[in-house]
Amino acid sequence: MRFVTPPSVPGFNPVVMTDATLVRRVLEGDTAAFTMLVDRHAAACTRFAMRMLGNREDAEDATQESFIRAYRSLGRYEERQAFRTWLFQILVNRCRTAALRRQRRQRMFLVDDNAVALASVRPAAESSGVREELQRAIDALDPDQREAFLLKHVEQLSYDEMAAATGVGVSALKMRVKRACDRMQWLLREVSDVGT
C-alpha cells in the first residue's frame, strides 16, 4: 500500500473537508485521507519542533514520530477537540522526549574536549540574521517557557488549547508565557532596539 494524493472520488473534496471528516474517512478505511492531514499540519509541526529543538534533523524525527503515533491512535481522537490541538499534544511530548534525549547525549559528549569545540560551532543558519538572533533567544529560554511561548505567540493556540496540549494548567501557562516574553525582550534588547 502506498499513500498518494487522494483520488477524485464522489464526495471527496479535500478543500472543504474538515480535519474531523478526514479522520473519519481514515477510520473507515480510506487511508489516503491521512495524506491530507499530513499536508495540512506537517509544516506547522515541523516549525514548532524546529523552534523547540533548534535543528531540522531532530525536528523532523519528532514530527515523524508524532504523525505515526497519531495515525496509530486515530481511533481515540475525539472530534470535540481540534485535530491540530490533539496532534500538538503528541508533538509536545515527542519534543520533550527528544530534548531530554539530546540533552543527555550532549552532556555525555561534553566531557570530551573535542566535543566541546564542535558543540560551539552553531549549525548552519536557516535564513536571515534576524531569525538567527530570534532562534538564539528562543534557545536561551527555559524549555517550559520556550514551549509555552511558541504555542502561544507562534502557533497561536488559545490557553485552553495549550493546556490540553501540554497538560499544564492555564494559570501556570500564562505565567510561563509572561516570563518568556520578559526574557525574550531582555535578550533581544541586547542586539536591537526591540521593545524599547
Partner: peptide, 19 residues
C-alpha cells in the same frame, strides 16, 4: 521527508475506531 513519512505510515495497519 514527507515521502518517507507516508511510506512508513503505509506500512502500519489501518487504524479503526475500536483500536
Amino acid at each position: 521527508w514527507r515521502s518517507q513519512l507516508l511510506d512508513d505510515i503505509a506500512r502500519l495497519p489501518v487504524p479503526t475506531a475500536e483500536d
